[in-house]
Each structure stands twice: as structure tokens, then as C-alpha cells.
Nucleic acid binder design. Sequence first.
DNA 1: GCCGTTTTCGGCCCGACTGTTTTCAGTCG
Length: 590
Amino acid sequence: MFMLKIFESALNYVERSCDVENSEVARVLYEIADFLELQGIAFKPQAYRKAARNVEQLDGDIMEYCAQGRLNEVPGVGKAIAEKIGELVNTGRLRYLEKLRAEIPSGVLELLQIPEIGPKTAMILHKELGIIGIRDLKDAIFNHRLSGLKGFGTKTEERILQGIRVFESKAGRILLSEAFIAASTIISYLQEQHKDVWVSAAGSLRRMRETIGDIDILVASSLSQEIMDTFVSFESVADILAKGDTKSSVRLSNGIQVDLRIVPEESYGAALQYFTGSKEHNVALRKLAISKGMKISEYGLFNRETNDRIAGGDEADVYRSLDLEYIPPELRENRGEIEAARKDSLPKLVEYDELKGDLHCHTEWSDGLGTIKEIWAKASSLRYDYVGIADHSQLLRIANGLSEARLLEQNREIGKLRESLGPPWIFSGSEVDVLQDGRLDYPKKALERLDFAIMSIHTRFKMGEKEMTERIVSAMSNEKVKMFAHPTGRIIGQRPSYTFDFERVVDAAIQNGIALEINAFPERLDLNDLNVKRAIDLGAKIVINSDAHAPVQLNYVRFGIAVARRGWAEGKDITNTKPFELLRKEWGLS
DNA sequence: GCCGTTTTCGGCCCGACTGTTTTCAGTCG
């Protein structure tokens, strides 16, 4: 039952952070914050967002906190917000939010999602031009109505247009993490209700692409009617778009569309292959089948002449019957995998359980939510050999970056914790900003005490290519630097990569023994799959880190491993598959 | 609206960048 394996740890993964009630409450608090910000109210938005974040990350059910009168134990929740949560949880509505919604059309909130548009601009656009949504805004730009406004010139108009393009490039697609959690929940639900059926994710989710259009789920069973009934009665279903015998589509309350297909068991492997895609991979596979006198469809692999079934029940059989090695879903993009599978030369991809540790975790010392000990405990539960604490450096005041004095203090605390806690070993590191001129944000003396520095760029993204390349390469000459965090700086759907000479940077990384990070944070996934392949082909080492800002987020490495697999990475390419002693030795630690 | 080993009231991350502002306002991280 290979097909089930991909999600067998789904429940583990979701833990309790996926609690619908908590995220629902958080969503409402975020919405209030946005409305207050639009109204130009100071400080309250931050207060609501802080409360929202803490509710979202809460290790427990907000309903229980509410029922037991313990809401005030949640950081950032005081009397006023506790009352609002109470009203929401008990009555399912919140009059305060309804009042806010009545004052400002919700389309104005939509404008805030566009980069370059903040609360002030959104309100001006709304009040002066009556704009209440992105479509209105595009019309207005098209008719050059913005440039008539005070304070708006042609460049502003162009910038906003660019912002809309960035926004739309991800529109209709959701992040892998979001799709993964939603799908895991639905799959578990289906399996609980129908114990003997085979269920798997298919489509781009099974290939673990960084964004997902909609979720495809495949079921093998003859009980289609019952399963369809179960599916459309899933608690988060908001709309039933279609419901038939073999295919149903629903929209969840969070807007995600989910398609369910049911096939007979003898076709399950072929259907899984077909619905996993990619389209390009399938086209190439079909051509290969034809060249071998066969034909392939979602129903099976058949002899072209006699129509005899050759394979279909098991996915690996379909590949085997075409004289191919089994191709893992992450590779199915028609980027040379079929050719490699013919020659038995597919990479031995890094496995989802192969990491020995996570080297980029934040704590409440800077902008994280947990203590060092809590991060350690989570690392321990993941059976890691080591975990690296890497809080922000002093430049990043916004993230409560550590001064030299606090860095020293943290370093000492880690020393003590190592003694008292035992394994996994806690590395004492830092995510150090690279300044504009390529220097690091701490002097040598401060860095010397650390086990490692992760160099990282958070400022001056718009430098020219040459300058940025110099800046990065120059920082790499520092011998404490062992990793380069989120190397391109892109945020999916929000911010493009800064420009630099990729090959020169990879080369400098190799020369200096620096691993390039796959930052597994869902919005980053940086390096991406293509860059991972480029870097490995050039001979670079990769490190997969969660960049966790809360203990539960150490789970994010799964998405980083997916990126590595999509980039054809093997275990030997990844720094943190190394055992503890080897890594220490490599870093020159005694 | 929240919070308190410097305050139960007065703070709340703040500096850099960009555009169109002739001295500053908005956005971002």
C-alpha cells in the first residue's frame, strides 16, 4: 500500500495547531486588525494581531480555554479581546466585527493584499475613487484615474500595477502547506469513515509543488455512492460544486476547491499515475507507451493491438511494465526523469525521515514564540540528534534582534541547557544579517563564541546585481558562516528574488564550505526546486532548515525536503543528514 | 487593546527607502 504512505504521518503532522476553532478565531482577530488599521487607529491593530498569532499557535483548544475562563492565560489576550472571543465562540458571531464590516466595504480589505498598498493608500483609493476591490482598482489604473489624485504620480501607478501582477501570479493557488494540511485532514476523515478503501492525494499536491491550484483526492472502491455522501458532508465543506458517481467537487470554507475521484481497485494504480501528472510527464509517458505498442490511460496500461490489460492496479507496475524505474511523484515534471528512469539512473532521493537535525530555529529571544527548551523538546520528539538555535542579529530591531550582550547571555544559557537536558545537542548559532557592504552584523569577537552563523539578507533588496553579488560573496569569506539562509529572498506570491550572479555565489559557497539553505518556511521555500538542482549540479551542499518561529513549526522541514526531492537531491547532498559527530568535526568544533 | 524586575499610565520595533512632498507620507521588514 505504497500510496497511503505519503500521508501516513498526517495526523502527527497536523498536531493540534490545525484546530479549526483556533484558526477561525485567529482569522477574525486578524480581520479586526485590518479594519482598525484602515481606520487609521494606532496600536490596536498590533494588539489584535499579537493576540491572533498567539491563538493560532496555541497548544490547546481555544474553546476549552474559553469554557474554563482561562482566556487571559493566552499572551496578548486581555479583558476586551477575551470578551470578543467569548462572544464569537458562544454565539458564532461578533457584533463588533459586524459593525466594522458595515463601516468599510470588505473589498477595501482585499486591496491590502496587494504589495505596495497599505492602509492609507487603500482608504484614499476607496474614499476618492470609490474603489472597493482589485477589479475596480485595475479599471481605475487602466483609465489613469489614479494620477489625478494628490500624491499619486505615474511611478506610483506603475508600482501598484506591478503589485497587482505579483498578487495575481499566485491568485487561485494556495501554498503547499495549506493544501497539505487540508488534504491530510480530509483523507484521515475519509479513512475513518471507510476503513478498507485506498485513499491518496494526487495532482500537484502529491508532486509537492510549492503552490497548489486545487486538491485532488483519489479513492479506490466500489462503494462510490456512500463515499461521495461522506465526502460532501465533511464539516468544512461550504459549497458542493458537483456530485456524481465517480467525481465530486466541493469548495471548503477557506476557499480551497477539492476534487474527489473514485475508481475501481483494478484501475487505482493507473488512475493515481494519471491524476498525479504532471501533464507534461504524462504526455511523455504516453508517447513511450505507444513506441512499445501499448497505450496508457487512467484505466490502465493496455496492449494496443489486443486491448489486453498489462498493468493498472499498482502504480509501480505501470512504470515497470514500461521498462522504467519507479519515478517518485516529486520528479514527474518531464525534466529528464523518464530518460533517467530508462537508464536506471534516477537519483536516490533524500527521504522524509532522513534529517538528523534542524539548524535554523528562532526562540522568544528574538521573534520566535517558544523557549530554547521548548525547541529542544520538539527536536527531541522528532528524534533529532541536534538542533540549532539561530535568532536574529542586532540590526533587525523589528524582530527583536539580539545585541552582542544578549547574544553572549543566550550562548551561556545554551551551554547550561546542554548540560541539564542531554541530547539532542543544542548548537548555539545566529542568523546574522549581511550589511550593505558585505560585513556581518556582529564583530568577529561576538561570532567566535558561536558554533555557527547563518548569513542572511533582510535589507536593501533592490541593489544592482553586481553590488548584491559582491555583498554576498564578501560575507561568505567569514569563516564562522556555515550556511546561507533563504538565498534568493523571494516570498511566494509577494516578493521576487533579489538579483545576483547565482553561479558566482554557488561557487563562493563551495569554496568556503557554506551550505545553501532550503528554507522550509511555507511562504519561502527558498531555494526552490530548480535552484536546488542547479546548485547540486554545480557541486554545492544544501541544508534543509525549518526557520521555525514556534516549536510546532519544526514540522515545516517536510516541505523543505519535498523541495530537495523535486530538485533531485540525495541524502549525501544535504548537510543535516550528517550525524552529529561528523558535523561538529566539519565545523571545527571541539 | 495590552502590559508592567525601571511605569496600573504611558508606552507600544523603528530605520530605510521611495516618490513627488519643497519638508514629508506611506510602505516594508
